[in-house]
Each structure stands twice: as structure tokens, then as C-alpha cells.
């Protein structure tokens, strides 16, 4: 009997962005991983809006540009976050407007508390405890909706807050580079990306670059391919947000978006018509925004 070769077969997880979006039904629970003006999965958000996907629940520790785009397009019914902004360019105006008019249900946490819920989801923990949020107005609405419980430590009786694990359906993360099996690297700080991916039942990646299996240094992998469902290559797919080591944020475009989002109504529709719904692909959008 011939010996098996010492190379394992690695699944090829490379697909198109359109295929990733086609696998996301209306009403899915998405986990997003951008932070304000950095590393947002903008190409993915565009494709999702063009596909007309509706009724999404979104979990994201630190909301940003991509979150506001989905709110602007009316794609989200529920949002779970710890905060959101587009840094000094502005607030998540479309998100905030939808929360106030009742069209978007919001669950709010502290940054650590939501990261801990994802951490518990990632590890399969029954629940996790923290001192964060104790005494604050963040607690009561979470307790009322079964998202937190005030308990005493079984060991020393100290007050603490118990938080249940969180298991989003699909995480979408914009990464620097992935190999064809989905092993992916994220450079720079990673905020809540690791537990956001690991808590989710399925992980889809959008990558600046895709290489062959074996080309990446295993000691620098942020997300193991074994957890990944699919990866699509979209260079510059985070525009207008920054992707560390690849490109800066586009200040002029972020200002333009912030003004449209703050104005809402026709101004925001005109933005979406021109830059999202009015183009067929992210490449067309990049041509549209090129100076």
C-alpha cells in the first residue's frame, strides 16, 4: 500500500463577494467587525444593500461607517453595540435617527461587556461575569430583555453582572490577506475582531489579497481557516475607511457621507443612489470616487 503524501488536502474557500451575499438570507444575525473609520467591510455592505437584504440583526462592538450605511439603506431591524461613530467626521446619524423613530431596536452595552458576550459565545461558556455596567442605566433594559442578570458571586457574594453568550449567524471581517483556505491575517490593533469571528456560526472574509496555502506565516494568523466559510478578494474593499498597512481613510469622502447621513432624506438617498445602488460592482464605485 502506498504511503499517503505528507500534504493534507486544503479546501478552497475562495468565492466572489456576490456569492457570499447570496448566502445571507433576510433576517440573518450578522456580526460586523469594523471600528468607526477603520477596517469596515464596505464592499460587503454595498453588495448586501444592492441585493436588497432586509430585516438584519447586526452585532458590532464599535459601530462605524458600514453600520450607518446599512441603517441608511433600511437593511437592519435590530442593532447590538457598545458605541458608534465615524470619529471626528460625525455620529452614526442614520442609526441614531432610526433608533429615535423606532424603526431600529437597539441593545446597548459597554465595550468590554459586549466583547465578553462574544468571548463567551466563542468558547461555548454558559455565561460570563463582569463588574462593568453595574449601577449604570445600561443594565435595566438588558435585564428586562434577558440579555443580562444581576447576581452575587457564588464564591464571595460580591455583586456582579452575568451575561449570556452571543452566537451571531455570520461574521464578516475585512482582512489584509488570506490564503485560499481562509487562513487570514489582520495587521495593526484587532479590537474585537478575534471574538467576533469566533463567536459566529459562520465566518466570511473580504480580503485585500488572496495567496496560496502555505504562503502565510502560521504564527501571524488572526483567524484560522478552519473557522472560515468563504473568502472573497476585493482590493480597496474598505474604502473610505482606513485599512492599516494598506491605505488611509478618505477624509473628503467621509465628510461627504457624514453630511448626507446627517441631513437624511433626499440627500442620503442621493448618496446611496450614486455610490451604492447606482453602481454594479465595488470597482465601479472606486472609479466613481477616484479624484
Amino acid at each position: 500500500m502506498a504511503a499517503m503524501a505528507a500534504t493534507a488536502a486544503r479546501p478552497d474557500r475562495v468565492v466572489s463577494l456576490r456569492e457570499i451575499v447570496a448566502d445571507i438570507p433576510d433576517g440573518s444575525h450578522l456580526a460586523l467587525a469594523g471600528f468607526a473609520i477603520t477596517r469596515n467591510a464596505v464592499a460587503f455592505a454595498h453588495e448586501l444593500i444592492r441585493a436588497g437584504t432586509r430585516g438584519l440583526t447586526v452585532t458590532q462592538v464599535f459601530g462605524g461607517f458600514e453600520t450607518d450605511l446599512l441603517a441608511a439603506a433600511g437593511a437592519m431591524d435590530c442593532l447590538t453595540y457598545a458605541s458608534g461613530s465615524i470619529d471626528r467626521f460625525g455620529l452614526l446619524y442614520a442609526v441614531n435617527r432610526a433608533v429615535l423613530d423606532g424603526s431600529l431596536a437597539l441593545s446597548e452595552y459597554s465595550g468590554l461587556a459586549l466583547a465578553l458576550r462574544l468571548h463567551a459565545g466563542a468558547l461555548g461558556l454558559p455565561f460570563v461575569t463582569t463588574r462593568s455596567m453595574l449601577g449604570s442605566d445600561l443594565v435595566a433594559p438588558l435585564v428586562a430583555t434577558g440579555q443580562a442578570a444581576e447576581i452575587e458571586s457564588p464564591f464571595d457574594g460580591a455583586p456582579c453582572l452575568a451575561l449570556p453568550p452571543l452566537h451571531p449567524d455570520i461574521a464578516v471581517v475585512h482582512v489584509d490577506v488570506a490564503d485560499r483556505a481562509g487562513n487570514a491575517m489582520v495587521g495593526g490593533p484587532v479590537w474585537s475582531i478575534p471574538e467576533t469571528a469566533r463567536a459566529s456560526r459562520m465566518v466570511d472574509l473580504v480580503a485585500e489579497e488572496i495567496v496560496e496555502v502555505g504562503e502565510l506565516d502560521p504564527s501571524r494568523i488572526t483567524i484560522p481557516g478552519l473557522l472560515v466559510h468563504a473568502v472573497a478578494r476585493v482590493p480597496h474593499g474598505g474604502h473610505p475607511t482606513a485599512v492599516y498597512g494598506h491605505y488611509d481613510f478618505d477624509a473628503a469622502h467621509l465628510r461627504q457621507y457624514a453630511a448626507a447621513s446627517n441631513a437624511g432624506g433626499d440627500a442620503l438617498d442621493a448618496y446611496l443612489d450614486r455610490f451604492v445602488r447606482g453602481v454594479a460592482t465595488f470597482d465601479e464605485y472606486l472609479e466613481e470616487v477616484a479624484p
Binding site: 471600528f35 468607526a36 473609520i37 477603520t38 462592538v61 464599535f62 462605524g64 461613530s85 470619529d87 471626528r88 467626521f89 465595550g111 468590554l112 466583547a115 465578553l116 468571548h119 495587521g187 495593526g188 490593533p189 484587532v190 479590537w191 474585537s192 475582531i193 478575534p194 471574538e195 482606513a242 492599516y244 488611509d248 481613510f249 477624509a251
Partner: peptide, 20 residues
């Protein structure tokens, strides 16, 4: 920097890590 998500704010850091 335009905020803490602006990579200009991360210059000459000793370590890049996570929120946890």
C-alpha cells in the same frame, strides 16, 4: 489624529492587541 480609529494615533506603539 481624527480619533482613536485613525492609524495616526497608533504611531510608535509598543504592541497592537485587542479590546479584551
Amino acid at each position: 489624529a481624527m480619533g482613536i480609529a485613525d492609524p495616526r494615533m497608533w504611531k510608535d506603539a509598543t504592541a497592537f492587541a485587542s479590546t479584551l
